[in-house]
Design a protein around this nucleic acid. Structure first.
Lengths: 183, 183
DNA sequence: TCGCACATGTAACGCGTTACATGATTAC
DNA sequence: GTAATCATGTAACGCGTTACATGTGCGA
């Protein structure tokens, strides 16, 4: 009835790259997939516990967990299989909800300058985002030059870069549009 | 604690354009904001009922509702004020979850051809989307040449067009990338 | 010794989707 | 008459966010 939990697959995918702790997964997601995938703590840890119970991941013995009680998780054969099965399915497209766009769609209810300010703020945020993405790109290429994952990581990064550039260009032209409209 | 219900504002916004029934709102959302905002039936009608109870919208008397029991809703002064207040707040950005991108991020677990097929299918879907957007653009300009809303509707449309074009261009280059990688 | 980053979790809350349910009107 | 579209709702379900709770180890 309701949608299937995708958090588990994000976790399995991350563990297919390397064994990690919950904290590592969280950090990796924030660093590398933040542009197209987010997870919240409240999902991550329960999902890890469930995957363990289902035998899709195993937690290294407490001994090997290093300091600070870090729990290192590994994919099991079943886990790898479950990931594979999911990866091969066609991706479902989530419903989109972009509040900025919705507010602009109703922009006739606001002053033109209000809308311009909104766009200008967005442009500013996009510039920062773009910069981050470009830095991450360099960073990845330097740190994992030989990883089999690198081409795919760069692919998803370029998606972010392209989209952010397109949004920026859109912002510029729309601000100009509004300025001209005022006169 | 949890997030505020945004459906109500989408409804108020739609009613700021013209009085509408629930069915009309639904149809309008599907036609015009589908690219950045979606609503499901299960949210729409209860939200309308709640807005009525709160006095933010009123339902025209049953008499005036036309055939088929259609209920025509109008904004009240309070409703207009509530919309205004919300519009002026900075937009919150929803967390993004793009399953296609996540699957590509883990693409090293699949064959190169599988990833290529995935991208090719996406490219096909994007072309259709782009076409729809361009048609809608013409349609809007023809049907509402003098509406104060038109500039903002076109703005949100151009966002969709720009983004879709960027995604398409990205698709093309990535398919080429993968082809070259295979050799 | 004080604060920050590391590290793992739980509970409340309600949003949003899906599926179900129902009936009228129009067009062929 | 019968299918499609118009039209309005309800109920189940669980996903995902936010806030809370707790403790460790390292560096300044």
């Amino acid at each position: 009835m309701a949608k299937e939990n995708k958090t588990q697959y994000a976790i399995l995918g991350m563990l297919s790259i390397a064994p990690m702790s919950g904290y590592d997964i969280r950090a990796t997601i924030k660093k590398s997939t933040a542009n197209f995938w987010a997870e919240s703590d409240g999902q991550l840890y329960p999902a890890l516990a469930m995957l363990t119970k289902q035998g899709l991941v195993v937690c290294a013995a407490a001994k090997d967990c290093g300091a600070r009680g870090k729990k290192l998780y590994c994919l099991t054969q079943q886990g790898r299989q479950a990931l594979q099965t999911w990866l091969e399915l066609p991706p479902e497209n989530q419903s989109i909800r972009n509040e900025l766009l919705l507010k602009l769609f109703f922009g006739a209810n606001l002053s033109s300058s209000m809308n311009q300010e909104r766009l200008a703020l967005y442009r500013y945020q996009l510039k920062i985002q773009l910069n981050d993405l470009l830095m991450t790109q360099q960073d990845l290429q330097r740190r994992f030059p030989d990883s089999t994952h690198l081409p795919y990581w760069l692919m998803s990064l370029r998606y972010g870069i392209r989209l952010t550039e397109a949004k920026l260009a859109w912002c510029e032209t729309e601000i100009e549009h509004l300025k001209r409209l005022e006169q």
